[in-house]
């Protein structure tokens, strides 16, 4: 288990505070932009980072993150350069960094080599939506030995016994997808969503954080009535797209404030 991530979740929980995490695609908008973006996020008080490892065929992503991924690949970002981002951040900050992406580039790097390298640069774990329980189970021990968390996802249509199974195998928090679909859709909190989130709130041993479709302060408020925090992805990528480079740091700070409220 990642100590940094665990400390964060414990501290937030004790203080009754909610977690705000930001997803950013490595190598976007420019190849070398990511370190500065992450420092700006840290300055703005973001609690942890999801660092996106771009993939050519991101089936769980909507058009905004698809385009960011393609742009990053066109910029020539490589897996080792993504590790370098973490390595550069680490001496200056203990912010938890989770690597998020798809399983093929990870397997291509080599599962063992990837885990070893992630531990070496002091990343905190992985979010790999196309690497479910059944396929990843054989790596649980190796991940544990390297203090890395594999964050599992659950969706509104995940059966209750499956939710328990995922809770049992999880090591830090659970990633809750707020709706069925890809990233970037507008989430509406229906009665069904509320029932789902309430179920999680009263049944999970682990904290859970809501991602997919969280875009505004309103969403932040609504979801954190149930969840321990939220992850903002698509809307942050759009902010980066729409902001000239010189104004980036200031805009990031304003954006984070606007989400937290």
């Amino acid at each position: 288990m990642s100590q940094r991530l665990n400390n964060l979740l414990t501290k937030k929980n004790a203080a009754g505070e909610k977690v705000l995490s930001i997803y950013v695609t490595a190598g976007f908008p420019e190849k070398d932009a990511t370190v500065d973006i992450i420092f700006a996020l840290i300055e703005s008080g973001v609690d942890f980072i999801e660092l996106g490892m771009p993939f050519s065929d991101p089936i769980a992503d909507g058009p905004v993150i698809q385009n960011a991924s393609q742009k990053a690949l066109d910029n020539g970002i490589s897996m080792n350069e993504i590790f370098d981002v973490v390595k550069t951040i680490r001496p200056k900050s203990d912010i938890p960094i989770l690597l998020m992406g798809y399983i093929n580039p990870v397997m291509r790097y080599g599962m063992d080599a990837f885990i070893q390298k992630a531990a070496e640069v002091k990343a905190d774990g992985f979010i790999l939506p196309d690497w479910p329980l059944e396929e990843s189970i054989e790596y649980i021990d190796l991940l544990k030995r390297n203090d890395l968390d594999l964050i599992h996802l659950i969706a509104p249509n995940t059966p209750k016994n499956r939710i328990k199974q995922i809770d049992d195998i999880s090591s830090s928090f659970i990633y809750c997808v707020a709706y069925t679909g890809v990233t970037g859709l507008n989430s509406q909190i229906t009665d069904e969503t509320k029932a789902f989130l309430s179920h999680l709130k009263s049944n999970l041993k682990h904290p859970f954080i809501v991602g997919f479709g969280v875009k505004t302060h309103e969403d932040f408020k609504n979801f954190t009535q149930f969840a321990n925090g939220v992850i903002v992805g698509t809307r942050f990528i759009q902010v980066l797209e729409n902001t000239p480079k010189e104004k980036r740091t200031g805009t990031i700070s304003n954006f984070i404030q606007s989400i937290r409220g």
Binding site: I59, A60, D130, P132, L153, A155, N157, V177, G181
Partner: peptide, 8 residues
Amino acid sequence: QFIPETLR
């Protein structure tokens, strides 16, 4: 089955 949980 390398798929997001939603499809399971």
